[in-house]
């Protein structure tokens, strides 16, 4: 997840240094200054959150619990980490998601998700998360961004 302060500082800099000098309308300049003040005061006061991230965290919780049951050896290092995640997940939402994702990556890299029930569980998480996030995306302005 891109650091929110960096997003704010990038937006502020481009609006102030690149857009503002091009504006000649007094009304537009006033509105832009108001936007800049809003952005400057949002900076440092926001954190990532919302239903998409919470939805992914819930899916990761379920996957971790199911994976613990599927992994045969309870002493396996990955199984220990999964149990720890299930029993005591990080309190900050972003940390919980990052930790959960790291566990999924290790399940994949370790070959645990190549076949069988665990593969189906991992693929179900990947699919549901991708669909959920794609549905949450707004229509892209990429054509306008490319052409100006």
């Amino acid at each position: 997840m891109l650091d929110l302060d960096r997003i704010f500082s990038g937006m502020i800099r481009v609006l102030e240094d690149r857009v503002l000098p091009e504006l000649t309308s007094g009304y537009a300049r006033g509105q832009l200054h108001a936007v800049l003040e809003l952005l400057e005061n949002l900076q440092g006061r926001t954190v990532w959150g919302g239903p998409l991230l919470e939805g992914e965290a819930a899916m990761l919780d379920s996957l971790a619990a199911e994976a613990v049951a599927e992994l045969g050896d309870p002493q396996d290092a990955l199984a220990v980490r999964l149990r720890s995640f299930v029993a005591d997940p990080p309190s900050l939402l972003t940390d919980r998601v990052q930790t959960g994702r790291a566990l999924v990556c290790d399940l994949v890299a370790g070959g645990h998700a190549d076949a069988g029930a665990l593969a189906a569980m991992v693929d179900a998480y990947l699919t549901n998360d991708a669909v959920m996030k794609a549905l949450g995306l707004k229509t892209s302005r990429l054509a306008e961004i490319s052409q100006g």
Binding site: L2, I7, R13, T127, A130, K133, S140, L142
Partner: peptide
């Protein structure tokens, strides 16, 4: 993210990767 560019067009990819996951899927 590393502030090596101020081109905010690069920042939009942070959410566009989510859409790309559907293409990978």
């Amino acid at each position: 993210a590393d502030a090596r560019t101020d081109d905010v067009r690069m920042a939009i990819f942070a959410h566009q990767v989510d859409g790309l996951n559907m293409v990978i899927a």
